[in-house]
C-alpha cells in the first residue's frame, strides 16, 4: 500500500469520499442506463418498422421521431443539463444530486442510443423478415423474435458504446452538483489542486469502461454465430 500512497498522497484521506463518489457514478450509469436501454430499443425499433417499406410503415411517426432525435442530439449536453431543470423537478421532484441527473442523462443518451439501435437492427437481412411474414407472424412477433433477437450481437455492441459515452456524461453531470467521479475530480483535483486525485478519477473511469467492454465483448462472442 505504501507505494500507492506515495504516488497518490491524497488517496488515504479521501478514500471514503472516493468510494462514495464512485458509488454515485455507478448509480447514475445504472439507473439512467437501464431506462435509456428500454427507450432506445423502443424508439430504434419504431424507426425501423415505421420507415418507408417497414412492416408497419407510418411516415408521420417515423419523421417525428427522426427529427426529434436529430434536434436532441444537436444540443450540447451541458446546455441540456440546465435546459431540463424544470422537467427534472416535475418528474423526479428535484434537479439536484444524483436523482436530479437522471432526466438529463436519459435525454442525453436515448437519442444517440436509438440511432445506434436503428443501425444495428437495420443490419437484419430483409429476407428474414419476409420469411417470417410468410410464416404468418404478426409485426409484434417479428419485432421481438426476429429484429431484436437476431441483432443481439449488434445491440450488445452499440449498448457498450452508449454505456461508455454515458459514463462520460455522468462526469459532466458532476459539474452541476450531481456528485460522482467527475465531481470528485473537479472538487479535489481542479479546485484544490490535488493533481493525484485527477489521476485517480482517470483510473476509476478506465476500470469502469474496461468492465463494460469486457462484458459487452463476452455477450457478442456468445451470441454471434
Amino acid at each position: 500500500m505504501g507505494i500507492i500512497y506515495q504516488i497518490f498522497p491524497n488517496l488515504e484521506k479521501l478514500a471514503p469520499e472516493l468510494i462514495k463518489c464512485t458509488g454515485q457514478t455507478v448509480q447514475m450509469v445504472a439507473v439512467s442506463g437501464i431506462i435509456s436501454f428500454f427507450f432506445g430499443l423502443f424508439f430504434g425499433s419504431l424507426l425501423i418498422v415505421t420507415r418507408k417499406g417497414g412492416i408497419l410503415e407510418c411516415l408521420p411517426v417515423y419523421n417525428i421521431i427522426d427529427k426529434a432525435i436529430d434536434i436532441l442530439r444537436s444540443i450540447p449536453f451541458l446546455i441540456l443539463l440546465f435546459l431540463l431543470i424544470p422537467l427534472s423537478r416535475t418528474i423526479v421532484g428535484t434537479s439536484l444530486g444524483v436523482e436530479g441527473a437522471y432526466v438529463p442523462l436519459i435525454f442525453g443518451t436515448v437519442p444517440f442510443f436509438s440511432r445506434q439501435i436503428e443501425t444495428a437492427i437495420a443490419e437484419v437481412d430483409p429476407g428474414l423478415i419476409e420469411a417470417s411474414e410468410a410464416m404468418g407472424f404478426s409485426p409484434i412477433e417479428i419485432i421481438f423474435s426476429v429484429y431484436l433477437r437476431e441483432s443481439i450481437p449488434g445491440i450488445a455492441r452499440v449498448s457498450m458504446i452508449t454505456l461508455i459515452s454515458l459514463i462520460g456524461l455522468t462526469t459532466m453531470a458532476g459539474a452541476v452538483g450531481a456528485g460522482g467521479v467527475g465531481d470528485f475530480a473537479i472538487r479535489y483535483g481542479y479546485q484544490l489542486h490535488q493533481r493525484d486525485t485527477i489521476w485517480i478519477s482517470v483510473i476509476i473511469t478506465l476500470i469502469m469502461v474496461s468492465i463494460v467492454q469486457l462484458v459487452g465483448n463476452f455477450i457478442i462472442k456468445k451470441t454471434k454465430h
Binding site: D125, G127, L128, E130, A131, E133, A134, M135, G136, F137, S138, V146, R149, E150, I152, P153, T223, H225
Partner: peptide, 22 residues
C-alpha cells in the same frame, strides 16, 4: 389476422434460404 392463418398453411422457401443465423 385471417391472412396470417392462411399463410401458416402455406410454406415458402427462398433463393437465399432466409434462415435465422442466431
Amino acid at each position: 389476422k385471417e391472412l396470417r392463418n392462411v399463410r401458416r398453411k402455406m410454406g415458402m422457401i427462398f433463393q437465399h434460404f432466409n434462415l435465422m443465423p442466431s
